[in-house]
Design a binder for these strands. Sequence first.
DNA 1: ACTATATACGACTATTTTAATCGTATATAA
DNA 2: TTATATACGATTAAAATAGTCGTATATAGT
Lengths: 132, 132
Amino acid sequence: MLKITRKVEYALIALRHMQQASEHSVSSTTEIATQYGIPQHLLAKILQQMARDNLIQALKGPAGGYKIKADLDKISLKDFFEKLEGPLGLMDCYFNTDCLQMKSCNILTPLQRINQNMRDMFSKTTLMEITQ
Amino acid sequence: MLKITRKVEYALIALRHMQQASEHSVSSTTEIATQYGIPQHLLAKILQQMARDNLIQALKGPAGGYKIKADLDKISLKDFFEKLEGPLGLMDCYFNTDCLQMKSCNILTPLQRINQNMRDMFSKTTLMEITQ
DNA sequence: ACTATATACGACTATTTTAATCGTATATAA
DNA sequence: TTATATACGATTAAAATAGTCGTATATAGT
């Protein structure tokens, strides 16, 4: 429990890789997948999603690939996680209000406080802090 | 991702229930399961584990049940989570050193810092803050 | 124009983790 | 003795995560 997914891991690895590549060069899926031992097709899907989210820019064709588009200093880890994996919460009822136990639940309020702490923590960290 | 398990949820609900019951009374599995809509057998296993961990005390036989044994003020949420679910880390490689990508991983160090932040956060919160 | 190499993307399958169930044994108050 | 409770291992079910496959499209280089 309380783990990040491989999807997020792979996305971070790729971002850091691009961040460290020279300014105007692009990194291809194959290059990144090979270097870090990531399943190529899986990484491809993740990079495509990041491109849709405008985190990175895609360049098609031979000698194509991706490069960083967004300002990583302005994107929090919380926003990044939510872009890739959806709402961030310790429990589903933070967003989803259809828990049948809602009425009788006796730990909702205290857990929401903890939850907010976690969200704050990830809000205060920028992507740049991971990738630089 | 980054969710607590139902097991932990149920454990917290049960603890809070016992905490709010009168000092010398015991709460049975059936009573708690019924009140909060928790599968009885599942809750039973969880309470048994908490009893083994000396968080609560079991009383067998008719009119039996459980009551709080530990000092909830002295137990951090981190320790509680680890008792129930094992090592607490954003990624497995925090404890488990058999990740094949370890050598090439370019985000290990920054992620470990984030991980430590999370552990610190749960270390600073006591069980009492959830159950009182 | 052709070809090789790259991204784009939906559908599918496999694996792992989490959640829940079942059966049986043991303790004990009434 | 009986009813009600905990104890616990084995098994199954469900959900979330991880990975694969096939096909389409774009484009640089020749």
